Amino acid sequence: MTEDLLNLDHVTRSYSSGGLFARTSFRAVDDVSFGLDASRPEIFAIIGESGSGKTTLARMILNMASASAGTIRFRGKALATIRGRRARLDFMRQVQPIFQNPYEAFNPLKRVDRYLYATAHHLARVSSDRMDSACDQALRQVGLSLAEIRGRFPHELSGGQLQRTAIARALISRPALLVADEPVSMVDASLRMSIVYLFKTLRDEFGMSIVYITHDLATAYYISDRIIIMQKGRVVEAGNARTVLDAPQHPYSKLLKSAVLSADSAGAEETTGPGQGREVMSR
């Protein structure tokens, strides 16, 4: 019998606005269900355009927002029942976020290594004599070292370096699950695929599962094992990543794919000439 690492059961998140006599409500997330098997690390992509509900869903998985209906469980425990400092720290130790903009993840007035040390101390419970070693090990997993970032402020690092540092910070507690919300959208194109490849390495070599939230079908096609495609809060298509993205069935999925292929073909024609564009995904 398999155990779910993460399980979402008919999860809905509703919001209301307006006054007492003219209130309106909408569902940012509407009846979403899926699960990740604890025994099989995988990269699970949540795909959708702005307003599709994918970031709201990520916030609920991270226990930063509660579900209006349905249940989210991590290792069988409902997130709604996680209360108290110790329980929250234990959850944070096992489930770590990676956000879209690395410059918003670090205070510009604080040196970035302070954040790594704080995570090592409070979440990973690393002893003071092993602090440098633990931080350096996490940084080396993302292609950096403690010597490169020690004493430096966020503005002294490139966007790619800072995002890698944010990922390293998330790795210090050795989580079972990473929730990465558009983690490469603010990174230069030259570094994008190296970070995407890093996620595959974390899955394969360190046994981490990753919920990868994106609007980018090309990286999702390359990185993901399974996907869901969301539109206006609802899942419109789900399944094996290659199967769904090679032959999408829902009109919205087909629209997303055609937009990617059109943009890629147009970009390729600018550099290689008409008729020589290379498609990101097979038809």
Rank of each mutant, 00 (worst) to 15 (best):
S173G: 07
S224Y: 01
L245T: 10
D4R: 00
A166V: 05
S133Q: 14
P97G: 12
A134P: 13
R93L: 09
E270G: 11
M230S: 09
S265R: 07
A80D: 14
R83T: 15
A65T: 11
R174T: 14
R169Y: 08
L62P: 07
L144I: 03
M281K: 05
A22I: 01
R111S: 08
A65F: 01
L191D: 00
K200L: 06
P183Q: 07
G84K: 06
Q141I: 14
G267V: 03
R174Q: 15
K54V: 09
A166N: 12
R169E: 09
G239L: 12
Y117C: 11
H122T: 13
Q96G: 07
T214F: 03
L177K: 03
L5D: 05
A166R: 05
R85I: 14
S127L: 11
G273Y: 02
P97T: 11
S190F: 02
A189H: 01
A180I: 12
A168P: 03
V235Q: 00
L198M: 07
L6V: 02
R83D: 13
T214M: 05
Y115D: 09
A38F: 12
F21S: 11
I210M: 05
I149V: 15
A263K: 04
P97Y: 09
T119I: 09
T2H: 00
N240G: 03
L255V: 01
A263R: 06
S128K: 08
A263V: 07
S253M: 03
R59C: 11
E42K: 12
D30N: 15
N63W: 03
H250N: 11
I98V: 15
R192L: 10
T12H: 02
E269W: 00
P108H: 09
M208V: 08
L109N: 14
G143D: 02
P175L: 13
V126P: 12
G267M: 07
R88Q: 15
I149K: 04
I229F: 09
L6A: 10
K200H: 05
T56M: 04
G239M: 08
E3V: 05
L144Y: 04
D225P: 00
T219C: 08
S66V: 06
S185T: 05
L178P: 10
Q161V: 02
R125G: 10
R234A: 15
S209N: 04
Q231M: 06
G84N: 12
S16I: 07
R242Y: 01
S185F: 04
G233K: 00
K54C: 11
S158L: 10
L162A: 12
G151Q: 07
A78F: 08
E104P: 01
V211A: 06
T271H: 05
L255T: 11
I47K: 01
M92T: 10
I227S: 00
G143A: 06
F206G: 13
R150A: 15
C135I: 13
I46Y: 02
G151E: 10
S173C: 08
D90I: 03
E182T: 09
G76I: 08
A238Q: 14
V95E: 02
R242E: 06
T24V: 15
L6M: 06
R169W: 09
E148K: 03
S265E: 12
A170I: 15
L89V: 05
D188A: 07
A87R: 08
R23Q: 14
I195V: 13
R283P: 01
M193E: 09
